[in-house]
């Protein structure tokens, strides 16, 4: 187990900001072999139905690599929308909308965490006011009860997967998503490791912004 830990300390993050010229903020983010493109538009005019008097309404659209979006993509949209609602200082933009668009480019298992990180970078790129940054980390539990950061190549050897989203202020959990079955201790261990790991994500965010 230790060998894996030290060997795969690197999350292998890559990012390119301002990849789309028309969007207010955009980012192409990759985590290992998983790549997601995100774009933020906002604050923009809002549809009457979705208008909120005291804050901005967030809408998110997730487009899969191929085919039409289905029920599982709706779930990702819901997760991202909720995270953005918590993180964005939406009270500063009443009666407006913030649109978050995501396009899956390549998926090697860390799609959700990659998408969330891409959204955070796109938000930073657009310059929209935020209460705090958010970073996501995926963690995998293999059939051999080993915990690993990189997704196993063979999908069938994954017993469980965790995605945690933390804020950068106190390191508290904003969002959690899991797949598969696991014990309480495994969940807690994964949570602790991810909390350490997410610091690297935030450092990476900082470096990316400094570079541009």
């Amino acid at each position: 187990m230790e060998v894996i830990e030290s060997f795969e300390n690197n999350l292998n993050l890559k990012c390119k900001l301002q990849v789309l010229s028309r969007a207010d903020g955009s980012a192409m983010f990759s985590e290992g072999q998983t790549v997601v493109l995100s774009a933020i538009y906002g604050p923009v005019e809002v549809k009457m139905q979705k208008l909120l008097i005291e804050k901005a309404s967030v809408e998110s659209v997730f487009k899969p690599k191929s085919g039409l979006p289905g029920v599982s993509d709706r779930y990702k949209e819901y997760l991202i929308k909720n995270i953005c609602e918590t993180a964005l200082a939406s009270a500063l933009y009443p009666r407006t909308a913030v649109l978050v668009n995501l396009q899956e480019m390549q998926n090697q298992g860390q799609l959700i965490s990659c998408a969330i990180n891409a959204v955070c970078l796109a938000c930073l790129d657009s310059g929209i006011d935020m209460k705090f940054l958010f970073g996501a980390v995926s963690y995998f539990l293999t059939k051999e009860e080993e915990l690993t950061l990189t997704p196993p190549i063979n999908e069938s050897s994954v017993k469980a997967m965790f995605v945690f989203v933390f804020n950068n202020t106190k390191g508290d959990v904003i969002a959690s998503h899991t797949e598969g079955r696991f014990s309480i201790d495994q969940y807690k261990t994964a949570l602790d490791i991810c909390r350490d790991e997410v610091k690297k994500v935030f450092i990476f965010f900082k470096e990316t912004l400094l570079d541009t």
Binding site: L79, V165, N167, I174, A175, T178, R181, F182, I184
Partner: peptide, 11 residues
Amino acid sequence: LCYVHKPGGSP
């Protein structure tokens, strides 16, 4: 545990 779902909101 088989599902821990926290969709954003308060930390």
